[in-house]
């Protein structure tokens, strides 16, 4: 299966509150709370610019993160994106 692109929630749908090293995310659509660590909030922020796949996301995040070895980064991001999909926070398009 081709690497899918993912879409973030619409603007204003998520309320993100940093809690120390964690972030609490309230999803206004589902009314659910998700507690996440870095880099989840950063992924969501990067996706806000528009849907993209894991490789595209790695490129967007490279500006603000030190991602060693591009292949690795995309694989890790794919896992994170699948976790965010299970939470309903992002959706494959």
């Amino acid at each position: 299966m081709a690497d899918p692109a993912y879409r973030a929630a619409g603007e204003g749908m998520l309320r993100i509150e940093p809690l120390g090293e964690l972030a609490a995310i309230f999803d206004r659509r589902s009314q659910q709370t998700h507690l996440v660590t870095q880099p989840m909030p950063e992924i969501l922020a990067a996706l806000a610019a528009g849907p993209c796949d894991a490789a595209g996301l790695a490129a967007r995040l490279a500006d603000s993160f030190d991602l060693d070895g591009e292949g690795d980064a995309a694989a890790i991001l794919t896992e994170r994106l699948q976790e965010l999909t299970a939470m309903g926070l992002v959706e494959p398009v």
Partner: peptide
Amino acid sequence: GQGEAFVRLTEASTNY
């Protein structure tokens, strides 16, 4: 930490 307190209190709440 704030995160741990948050988790413990969601578990201690019946209407969260």
